[in-house]
């Protein structure tokens, strides 16, 4: 079996709401793929369809080329964490893993091994109801790893973890991907995926917004923009705009300039006797890149509703900027 997740033209509607609208993407082995979008973008629904819990209205959600429902020994094919709170509060953490392990004929030693691995060795004998959200996330991850599967689907695994836990899970996920597993991690916050995801699938309102590597996304978001600090903001803006640059005010003393190389800006400001203190290439964060992506997507959608001409203009502007 190929350790991949494939989603093809997937569509799911709940009543009047279209949760997933023609979504297609592929998750490859050996890397952590972030599945990003605001709440309600259709991430969980997509994951539920991948796990055979919801039936797609059309399209396909495949694991290693097969529908989940047709998998034999599914825990050895896919590990999933959907809802960390989904444990019976009266059942001890270890017992929760125990029934799951026995459903696939794994020995109890496998359970203890995993409790150790996720750092719950001592808490395993406590009732799950007494666990913090972070501990439940760890229990859920242990459950996902029981069958040592080549594919992992984790829905918001960072949610509720403390900074130490977040660091732990980032390293953990990267380690799993390095072993050659396909790891799909959803999140509604791009910042949670910083330093762990190699690839991103960005969705909004059930549609694909971007399917890109993290490096490419950062490069395109940074563009050739220049960050500038100046006490004479208005003069600087006027001067640079006359020379054909696009200037945006980030704060009372800072500007982002695009369309002009750094040397030219320095020359212009010096010639115009406009004081400035700092100038350098703008470095976008993943969060910014994401905001830009989703903002464009939002604009795109609102414009689309009116006329196609405006859409074209918007696209041209975007092209001109990049």
């Amino acid at each position: 079996m190929q350790a991949t997740i494939e989603v093809q033209e997937l569509r799911k509607q709940f009543g009047q709401t279209v949760a997933v609208d023609g979504l297609s993407f592929t998750v490859r082995p050996g890397q952590v793929t972030g599945f990003v979008g605001p709440n309600g973008a259709g991430k969980s629904t997509t994951m539920r369809m991948l796990l055979g819990l919801d039936a797609p209205d059309s399209g396909q959600a495949l694991i290693g080329g097969r529908r989940y429902a047709t998998l034999r020994r599914p825990l050895t094919e896919v590990g999933a964490l959907l809802d960390a709170a989904a444990v019976h509060p009266s059942r001890r953490g270890r017992d929760h893993l125990l029934w799951l392990a026995h459903s696939h004929g794994f020995p109890s030693t496998r359970v203890d091994e995993l409790l150790e691995r996720v750092g719950l060795a001592s808490a395993g004998r406590r009732r799950a109801g007494s666990y913090s959200l972070g501990m439940r996330q760890r229990l859920g991850i242990a459950a996902a790893l029981l069958g040592d599967p080549p594919v992992l689907l984790l829905d918001e695994p960072v949610n509720g973890l403390d900074p130490e836990g977040i660091r732990w899970i980032r390293g953990f996920l990267r380690g799993l991907a390095r072993e050659g597993r396909a790891v799909l991690v959803s999140s509604h916050l791009m910042s949670e995926l910083e330093d762990s995801a190699d690839h991103l699938v960005v969705v909004g309102r059930g549609r694909l917004i971007a399917d890109t590597s993290v490096a490419e996304l950062l490069a395109s978001a940074s563009g050739d923009r220049v960050a500038l600090r100046t006490s004479a903001r208005t003069e600087a803006m006027g001067l640079l705009a006359r020379e054909g640059a696009t200037v945006a005010a980030d704060g009372p003393r800072s500007l982002t300039v695009s369309g002009l190389p750094t040397e030219r800006i320095v020359a212009l400001l010096t010639a115009g006797e406009v004081p400035f203190s700092e100038i350098g290439a703008h470095r976008a964060t993943l969060e910014e890149a994401y905001m830009e992506l989703t903002r464009d997507a939002a604009e795109f959608r609102t414009v689309e509703a009116h006329t196609d001409t405006e859409t074209d203009t918007a696209n041209e502007t975007e092209e001109a900027r990049s």
């Binding site: 350790a3 490859r28 082995p29 050895t76 004929g105 794994f106 040592d148 080549p150 050659g180």
Partner: peptide, 16 residues
């Protein structure tokens, strides 16, 4: 897309 060897579990086969 780096070429990777997909993961293979060393565990004995499971029964379900």
């Amino acid at each position: 897309t780096p070429t990777v060897t997909p993961y293979r579990s060393p565990l004995p086969p499971a029964r379900d």
